[in-house]
Design a protein around this nucleic acid. Structure first.
Length: 366
RNA sequence: GUGCCCAUGGUGUAACGGUUAACACAGCGGUUUGUGGUACCGCUAAUUCGGGUUCGAUUCCCGAUGGGCACC
C-alpha cells in the first residue's frame, strides 16, 4: 500500500505513493486540516480547486459535533462534507491533552470535559476506533497520550507505556471493526525529547505492527533544534517501507527539514489559521532555496491602497483578479470572503511547496 | 426667553482636591506548529475655552462656547 518511488542520494528524503481506498497520495504530502469536517471557510468546490490528495479530520471534534448519529446517516465523514478523496482522522489524543483543562488519565482510557459544553466524556482505544470506523476515514490514528515534551522522565515513561498499550488495543479493535482492512491504521511515537524513550516507543509499536508511523508530541514548545535532534534520531530507526508522519508540523522550513530526514506526511494549522489572521505566504523564488518565501500581513495599513493582485501566479481565479487593497478592505470590514481568499492562498502555497519538493526529489536535487 | 443638567483619546464611558487620568471599541503593530474565524500580546491616543479659589483643579466657583431636558 505504500510504495517508495525514489530515495534521494543527497538527503534522506523519499518520494512515494500511499494508496488508500479513496485514492493515491503522493508523498511527501501536506494534509490541509478540516478538523470539524470543513477546511475553515472553504467549500468542496474550493477544495477541488486546491486538489489536495488527502485532508485531515478530527475524531474528538466530529464525535462531539455533529456527533456520530449524524455521520452514520451519511455513511462517512467524506460523504457528509462531500469530499471524495482520502481523509485521515486524528484520534483525539492531542485534543484531550490540549483542549481539556480537566482530564483524568486512566489505564483504560481518558475522561475529559467537552470544549463545547463542558459535558464529560470517556475515550478508550476501543471507543476511538469505533468512532473512526463510523467516520470511515481512510487513515486512522491510534489513541495516544501526548505529554508536554518538558515533562519529567517518569511522566513521559508512563505516557509512553500507556500509548503502547492503547496502540495494541486500537489495532485489535480495528481488526474487529474493519476485518478487510479497508482503512489504514497509524501508530504514534511518543517520548518527548528523549532519544532513548523515542526509540523505545517506536520499537514497541513496530512490534505490534502498523500501516504507518507518526511522530507525535513535537512542536509543542521546544526549540527547532530540539525538535530536529529528535527527528533526525528517530527517523533513522523508523521502518523504511512504512509511511512516516510528523504530526502538527509546521512552518515551511520545519517541513523541508523533516522531509530531508525522511518524513513523508505533514499536517499543520499554520497555513489556514494564520490566513484567518491576515498572514499570507508567497513564493519569492521558483525554487526551495534559503529565503524562498515571504509572508505579509494583509491587514497592515500599507496595503490599503495596494492595487497589485493578491497573487498573480495563483491558479485560483479570485487570487489573480482581486487586488491586495480589496482583500485588505475585506479584512477590515470582517467579511467572510477575506478568510476564504487568504485560506485559499496559503493552502495553495503549502501544496505547491510540497509539489516542488517532490519534483526536486525526482530530479535528484533535494 | 427662563430654569435645570452635561462637556474627559477617533467613539462610548470611568475616576479623583494630591504619584504616570482607568476601561471597552476603533486605529497601528505583533503572536499562532495533531485549528484560535469569536484567541492572545504590545503600542498610539483625552480632561472644550477664558478667568478665579487652592501649596496643588480634570474635579470646587464664575463666565464663554457647544449639546440635552423641562417650562413659557
Amino acid at each position: 500500500m505504500y510504495k517508495i518511488l525514489k530515495k534521494s542520494k543527497i538527503s534522506r528524503a523519499r518520494l512515494g505513493i500511499l494508496k488508500t481506498k479513496s485514492g493515491e497520495i503522493h508523498t511527501p504530502v501536506f494534509m490541509p486540516i478540516a478538523t470539524r469536517g470543513v477546511i475553515k471557510s472553504l467549500s468542496y468546490k474550493d477544495i477541488e480547486k486546491l486538489n489536495p490528495d488527502i485532508i485531515l479530520g478530527n475524531t474528538y471534534h466530529l464525535y462531539l459535533k455533529p456527533g456520530l448519529d449524524v455521520i452514520k446517516k451519511f455513511g462517512s465523514v467524506g460523504n457528509f462534507m462531500n469530499y471524495k478523496k482520502s481523509i485521515l482522522t486524528d484520534s483525539g489524543g492531542f485534543q484531550v491533552f490540549s483542549l481539556s483543562k480537566i482530564r483524568k488519565l486512566m489505564i483504560n482510557g481518558v475522561e475529559f470535559q467537552s470544549t463545547y459544553d463542558g459535558s464529560r466524556h470517556f475515550f478508550t482505544p476501543e471507543s476511538v476506533m469505533r468512532t473512526q470506523n463510523v467516520l470511515d476515514s481512510d487513515i486512522q490514528m491510534v489513541l495516544d497520550v501526548c505529554m508536554d515534551s518538558k515533562s519529567d522522565r517518569k511522566k513521559l515513561e508512563k505516557a509512553l507505556e500507556i500509548t503502547s498499550l492503547w496502540a495494541d488495543k486500537c489495532k485489535k479493535a480495528k481488526k474487529r471493526l474493519d476485518p478487510k482492512n479497508k482503512n489504514l491504521l497509524f501508530a504514534i511515537v511518543q517520548g518527548g525529547l528523549s532519544k532513548e524513550l523515542r526509540s523505545r516507543s517506536l520499537k514497541e509499536l513496530v512490534e505490534i505492527g502498523f500501516d504507518g508511523y507518526a511522530i507525535g508530541g513535537l512542536a509543542v514548545g521546544e526549540t527547532n533544534e530540539e525538535m530536529y535532534e529528535v527527528l533526525s534520531h528517530i527517523t533513522k530507526e523508523m521502518p523504511e517501507k512504512s509511511p512516516r508522519y510528523l504530526m502538527g508540523v509546521g512552518y515551511p522550513e520545519n517541513i523541508i527539514e523533516a522531509v530531508k530526514n525522511g518524513v513523508d506526511m505533514f499536517d499543520c494549522v499554520i497555513p489556514s489559521r494564520e490566513a484567518r489572521h491576515g498572514r499570507m505566504y508567497f513564493f519569492k523564488s521558483d525554487n526551495l532555496n534559503k529565503d524562498f518565501y515571504k509572508t505579509i500581513n494583509i491587514t497592515n495599513a500599507k496595503f490599503a491602497n495596494d492595487k497589485s493582485l493578491i497573487n498573480k501566479d495563483s491558479k485560483i481565479e479570485e487570487l489573480n483578479i482581486y487586488s491586495k487593497a480589496y482583500l485588505h478592505h475585506l479584512f477590515k470590514v470582517q467579511d467572510p470572503l477575506a478568510l476564504r481568499l487568504s485560506t485559499l492562498n496559503n493552502i495553495e502555497f503549502y501544496l505547491e511547496m510540497m509539489k516542488r519538493m517532490r519534483v526536486l526529489i525526482k530530479l535528484g536535487k533535494f
